[in-house]
């Protein structure tokens, strides 16, 4: 049982990293960035290239992946979303889906359809604590995710740019009256969300030893589910939603069978949308006039 908790936490923290990107972008643009899963995929590929082709050490490859994905995220925002800032929501949604398909096919054209193995940059050890087996992957995934989330929390709560992000999320027009360049903050939000997704992409790509152009689809949907579960727009919600979803999946698989994994995740999505669409930590939008 405890073993499942460890597995659930590992899976959940990677969902949380993906969910954060959805929720942050939703926070500033009220838009679900359906190309987010593909940015996660792009991050995995950049990390793979950095460590395999360029031969960079793991930590550097990870940072390269995060920086590269941040650039991809900013470009996606610039060409697919910014021109539609005043367009109807449906147009932006279609643009997002189009971007997702485009990026997947771009990866297919550039990298080919085959699944690539991720070179393991270190010796994998198994840690035995009583009956518990913890691999160095679990430790790496947990530490990296927790570290990134603490960093994000600090960024959003304490720094000047973080305050500007929250101001833009609450009221763009008034934020601009404060001297905040709203477009710049939106681009920055995409960069941060994309970098987190890339970190997840590298970690998961390595953990499953598989990187391919369509790898972003399922984790993208899971990250979205986690964001909705926690309350889309809420950063702590995305962290909590990710962990809960990972936990539910692992427990469900342990109790039922592994084919049920995705059914459980999307069952939760449907249930949340029915019972509490604003999610666990989401707020009902009410403002005092």
């Amino acid at each position: 049982m405890l073993q499942q908790v460890v597995n659930g936490l590992t899976l959940g923290s990677s969902y949380a990293l993906i969910a954060l990107g959805y929720t942050m972008v939703y926070g500033v643009l009220r838009l679900i960035n359906f190309a987010h899963g593909e940015i996660y995929m792009a991050g995995a590929f950049i990390g793979l290239m950095a460590s395999q082709v360029a031969g960079l050490p793991f930590a550097v490859a990870m940072l390269t992946a995060m920086a590269g994905a941040a650039v991809v995220g900013v470009i996606v925002e610039r060409i697919a979303y910014r021109p539609l800032r005043k367009a109807p929501r449906l147009a932006v949604l279609i643009s997002a889906i189009g971007m997702s398909i485009f990026l997947r096919n771009l990866a297919l054209a550039l990298m080919g359809p085959q699944t690539r193995a991720f070179p393991i940059p270190f010796e994998v050890k198994q840690l035995h604590v009583g009956k518990l087996r913890i691999s160095s992957f679990d430790v790496l995934i947990l530490l990296t995710s927790v570290g990134l989330m603490i960093g994000l929390h600090f960024l959003v709560q304490k720094t000047k740019i973080g305050k500007a992000m929250r101001a833009v999320a609450e009221d763009k027009e008034t934020a601009s009256l404060m001297g905040i360049s709203v477009n710049r903050i939106i681009a920055f939000t995409f960069a941060i969300g994309s970098a987190l997704a890339a970190a997840a992409g590298v970690l998961i790509g390595m953990n499953f030893n598989a990187v391919d152009p369509s790898m972003g689809m399922m984790p993208g949907l899971k990250g979205f589910t986690a964001a909705v579960l926690g309350g889309v727009g809420s950063i702590p919600g995305a962290m909590l939603g990710g962990l809960l979803l990972g936990m539910a999946e692992v427990m469900g698989v342990a109790l039922l069978r592994s084919e049920w994994r995705d059914a459980i995740a999307f069952g939760i999505l449907a249930l949340v949308l029915l019972v509490k669409p604003s999610g666990i930590l989401g707020r009902n939008l009410q403002e005092k006039v």
């Binding site: 609450e170 027009e173 905040i180």
Partner: peptide, 14 residues
């Protein structure tokens, strides 16, 4: 149009 979810101090800092 104060930023209602942020503190008074954060509003002033903005």
């Amino acid at each position: 149009r104060v930023f209602s979810r942020m503190t008074v101090m954060e509003n002033l800092e903005l």
